[in-house]
Design a protein around this nucleic acid. Structure first.
Lengths: 157, 157
DNA sequence: GGCGGGTAGGTGATGCGTCATGTATCGTTC
DNA sequence: GAACGATACATGACGCATCACCTACCCGCC
């Protein structure tokens, strides 16, 4: 190990769990990404954006609202929407109420793409995750993830 | 929802858990990254590479072995080592036994960096993850992650 | 009416990751 | 010993993500 002894390293269980977690994460996301890319030409972030847009009653969403829904930075949304616009999955509209604002709307191409992607995506999540878990495990994991998540940002740095 | 009814979507527990998981992941990795960046100027991948190198008895590791240890693609290792070489964290050596091969070695700068990073990194993982979990939970999570991981790659596509 | 601070969004630089491809070398087989 | 397929690694192009910074606009106030 590279670290001086004063800092207690993780014990075996912890170390094994941590490694499994990191690898699982990487593999899970990569697999979901790859399958959706193959089936519908969408990346995971593409899917998330299109999902929000297609669920919006007005059919158009402000950049900032999109950022809030996805918990992304506005800049990230801006970049991503720009890329998606090039591929004609979404389009931008000016916002009449606020000269600074912009709407994003899903296009026909985008609608087709997400409809094509959705069933496979859900099936993949089921197959990779939920088919291997009991309902009790799902509940426990949900609680644990929530607990961990709520601690992030407290007393950092 | 965007998907046709034939495909069963996730139930509430599943959906909540899945969202928590995705967000937790993103936030956890981002936080670990940010803290190590601030403390020692290293990214997470930098740390992993340096850790393998500094644990190697010979002080040098073949690119392919590095890829195997980290479970990265060789190409990724190649790119990453190139970036780290620019920052003088590692250096490349020619391999006398195999004209195709290359060794990577940690530099003094790299050694200093990982020694500076390691205690904080371990503390961060403890603080963010293990301080909030009981040993039973750690064991259960380890088992679950292992189970899920072993299913990836079976019957894909 | 014009000043000042906050907000909406865009942009450029840079690092990270993958895919497709290229090049040199190795080992084997004839 | 030449040819051939496999291996080791590099490279270029591209998408993704963040950071730092910019512009334009809104709103409240003097």
């Amino acid at each position: 190990m590279a670290e001086p002894n004063e800092t207690p390293w993780l014990n075996d269980d912890e170390q094994r769990m941590w490694r499994e977690w990191l690898h699982l994460d990487a593999e899970l996301l990569a697999t979901l990404n790859r399958e959706m890319q193959a089936e519908a030409g969408l990346s995971n972030p593409d899917y998330q954006v299109l999902a929000v847009l297609s669920e919006s009653p007005e059919g158009r969403v402000r950049i900032s609202d999109l950022a809030a829904s996805l918990q992304w930075e506005r800049s990230r949304v801006s970049h991503h929407v720009a890329r998606m616009e090039k591929r004609e999955l979404v389009s931008r509209l000016e916002c009449p109420d606020d000269g600074r604002g912009a709407f994003v709307r899903i296009t026909g191409t985008g609608q087709t793409a997400i409809e094509r992607a959705a069933p496979g995506h859900v099936r993949a999540v089921r197959r990779l995750v939920f088919d291997a878990l009991t309902p009790e495990e799902v509940a426990r994991l949900g609680e644990i993830f929530h607990r961990l998540r709520s601690r992030i940002g407290l007393s950092a740095e």
